[in-house]
C-alpha cells in the first residue's frame, strides 16, 4: 500500500505510509501475537507434567556394591549405572586423561569418590543402554561400556572413545548423604 502515492482512503504521505498502513500493521502484529499465545499452552502441555517432574530423586546405598561390580538403578525412567571401580580401572581412567577424545574431561571431575562412578546409563548417541554392567557382557575396547546399537565404546570413566556418540555418559547431579548413601537428583 505504501508503494502507491495515492490511495483512495489513506492520506498519502510519500514514503511514510498511511494511517491505514499503521492500522493494518498493528492489527497484524496483535493477531500474530495472539495466535502465538494461543499455541503456547498446547505446546507446553506436551512438556513433562508436574507429577512426572515430582519423581525426581532417589537414594541408593552404594556400600553393598563389591569392588569390580556394578549395579543399575532406575531414576526418572532411565537406568543409572553405579560402578565400584577397581584401582586398576581408576588408574587406567586417570592415565588416559590426556588422550585424544571427542569430549575431553578429566576423570577426577567425573566421580566425587574415585571408586564409585555414577552415570546415566544412556548412550549419548541415540539413547540405547550400553552393555558392560554384568561380567558376561562386552565392555568394548576401553574396558568401560559398549553400546550394541551402533557400536559406541566408553572407557572406565564413561568417556566416549570410539563410535558415533558425541558426548561422555552423563554424570547426574548427586551427593553423598552419608558415607555410603548417594542421593541422585
Amino acid at each position: 500500500m505504501a508503494d502507491h502515492a495515492q490511495t483512495p482512503h489513506g492520506q498519502a504521505t510519500g514514503e511514510q505510509g498511511t494511517r491505514r498502513d499503521f492500522l493494518f500493521l498493528t492489527a497484524a502484529s496483535v493477531t500474530a501475537f495472539g495466535a502465538a499465545s494461543a499455541v503456547w499452552p498446547f505446546v507446553s502441555s506436551m512438556n513433562p507434567s508436574k507429577d512426572v517432574l515430582a519423581l525426581s530423586s532417589i537414594e541408593v546405598d552404594v556400600g553393598q556394591v563389591a569392588e569390580g561390580q556394578a549395579i543399575t538403578v532406575k531414576w526418572r525412567g532411565k537406568p543409572v549405572f553405579i560402578r565400584h571401580r577397581t584401582a586398576a580401572e581408576i588408574a587406567e581412567a586417570v592415565k588416559d586423561d590426556g588422550a585424544d577424545m571427542k569430549d575431553p574431561q578429566k576423570d577426577e571431575v567425573r566421580a566425587q569418590k574415585p571408586e564409585f562412578l555414577v552415570l546415566v546409563g544412556v548412550c549419548t548417541h541415540l539413547g540405547c543402554i550400553p552393555l558392560g554392567q554384568k561380567d558376561a557382557e562386552p565392555k568394548g575396547q576401553f574396558g568401560g561400556w559398549y553400546c550394541p546399537c551402533h557400536g559406541s565404546m566408553y572407557d572406565t570413566s564413561g568417556r566416549i572413545r570410539k563410535g558415533p556418540a558425541p558426548l561422555n555418559l552423563e554424570v547426574p547431579a548427586y551427593q553423598y548423604v552419608s558415607d555410603t548413601v548417594v542421593k541422585i537428583g
Binding site: V43, M46, N47, P48, S49, V52, R76, G77, K78, V122, H125, L126, G127, C128, C149, P166
Partner: peptide, 26 residues
C-alpha cells in the same frame, strides 16, 4: 527411543525438543 533421539542431534534446541516429544525424561 532411537528415532526420537535423532532430534537430540540438533544443536542447542535438540534436548528440549526430545523432552517435548517424550513429555518426560524417557
Amino acid at each position: 527411543t532411537v528415532i526420537t533421539n535423532l532430534f537430540s542431534a540438533l544443536p542447542v534446541v535438540g534436548e528440549h525438543i526430545v523432552t517435548l516429544l517424550w513429555g518426560g525424561f524417557s
